[in-house]
């Protein structure tokens, strides 16, 4: 979990930084999207790097979901009879929403790929003009897309907050001071990441990006 999660986190960081290029302007953003396809050349043929990255991420994602499923099944098996009085959450909400949160994020990722990678669900759907695709996505009249995006990102924030803390712990973080630090880093990072992803749609709505 921790290892695959971390790969995904690294991707999320890179992806966010890339997204933020949208503020630099349409050409720069389009150029970035194009550059993605040519990294590594001339050593690697065009789009190879992208495919390597895609497959690593894909494998990470599958492995991640697979281990989460194993854990969830074990959890279910470990408590065959449920409590009649539903336990109240004593620990953290973020921790208790990992599984459903994960599913929401996964659905989002699917939509997201169909939307901006293949373009099937995008009103513009022109792979050579990602800037326009994005701007079209978050147009005010398509508020439900924005809403879904926001929900997914906030869910991701929760997911990351506990996930990162949990990863530190799984990899052996063991002191109380370290725990406070790990929690702070996880929280700070998740907030930053959420903010980074959320400025894009809001900027589109606000008309800063069109």
């Amino acid at each position: 979990m921790a290892v695959t999660g971390i790969l995904l986190v690294l991707f999320l960081i890179a992806h966010m930084l890339g997204n933020l290029k949208i503020f630099v302007g349409a050409t720069s953003f389009d150029h970035y999207a194009h550059w993605l396809r040519t990294i590594g050349s001339p050593v690697l043929p065009d789009t190879w790097y992208l495919w390597i990255q895609r497959s690593v991420l894909g494998i990470a994602l599958v492995a991640h979901i697979w281990s989460a499923t194993v854990l969830a099944r074990r959890a279910r098996a470990a408590r065959p009879v449920r409590y009649a009085h539903r336990p109240k959450v004593q620990g953290s909400y973020a921790a208790r929403t990992m599984r459903w949160g994960g599913v929401i994020i996964a659905l989002f990722v699917v939509y997201h790929l169909l939307d901006l990678t293949t373009g099937d669900l995008n009103p513009v759907g022109d792979p050579r003009r990602p800037y326009a695709n994005v701007a079209a996505d978050f147009a005010p009249e398509r508020w439900y897309v924005t809403l879904f995006y926001v929900v997914a990102i906030v869910t991701l924030g929760f997911h990351l907050r506990h996930g990162m803390f949990s990863a530190f712990r799984s990899l052996g973080q063991q002191t109380p001071r370290g725990e406070r630090r790990a929690r702070a880093v996880a929280l700070g990072f998740s907030v930053a990441l959420c903010a980074g992803y959320l400025v894009v749609p809001f900027a589109v709505i606000a008309g800063l990006v069109r």
Partner: peptide
């Protein structure tokens, strides 16, 4: 079950 560091 397996631990996911929930803290309950």
């Amino acid at each position: 079950g397996g631990c996911t560091n929930i803290g309950e």
